[in-house]
């Protein structure tokens, strides 16, 4: 590759998208993934990474409501899309029921996989408000967690689901 081509590749590009409900305009290096854009250019470090190869699920965010691995998504593909990250979940100072349930029921130990799991669970509960434990396990099978053994993650999602359905005691 010639020197000029290399400099061209470094030239920032401009992108507009919605991040956690806010219109956002950002200038960034075009080779970046959505993960890198969020963490490095937008300062949203709540989204984590464990491989950057699509293997661990730590980087899951919602794009137009769909759970996606942000490490496999080029940022420039996100023009005009709506991206939701863990930072956009709480309402004011109040935790989202999923966040509260993870904190209270042991769903988060080191907390590193947590943002990815919670975003995946959010997409599940929006589609299926009353999933079985097996269904929860299936939906989160792409999110590796080395700490919890998953059981308390499933507990937390069940609790949050019942809270969201308005059944919580």
């Amino acid at each position: 590759m010639s020197g000029t081509a290399r400099i061209e590749r470094r030239r920032n590009v401009q992108l507009r998208l919605s991040v956690n409900g806010e219109d956002t305009e950002v200038s960034f290096a075009p080779y970046k993934t959505l993960l890198e854009l969020l963490r490095e250019d937008l300062g949203l470090t709540g989204t984590k990474h464990g491989c950057e190869l699509g293997e661990c699920g730590a980087c899951a965010v919602l794009i137009d409501g769909e759970p996606q691995l942000s490490c496999l998504k080029l940022a420039i593909e996100c023009e005009g899309r709506a991206v939701e990250t863990i930072e956009g979940l709480a309402r004011g100072n109040a935790l989202h029921p999923l966040q509260a349930a993870f904190a209270d029921h042991g769903g988060s130990q080191c907390g590193y996989c947590t943002p990815g799991v919670i975003m995946t669970a959010k997409a599940l509960l929006e589609r299926e408000p009353n999933p079985s434990r097996d269904r929860i396990r299936e939906a989160t099978a792409g999110n590796l967690c080395r700490c919890t053994g998953y059981q308390q993650i499933v507990d937390a999602i069940e609790h949050a689901a019942s809270e969201l359905r308005g059944e919580a005691k």
Binding site: I86, Q99, F102, A103, P115
Partner: peptide, 10 residues
């Protein structure tokens, strides 16, 4: 440290 973890704030 639970709250900071679920907020992605840690």
């Amino acid at each position: 440290d639970g709250r900071a973890k679920v907020l992605g704030q840690l």
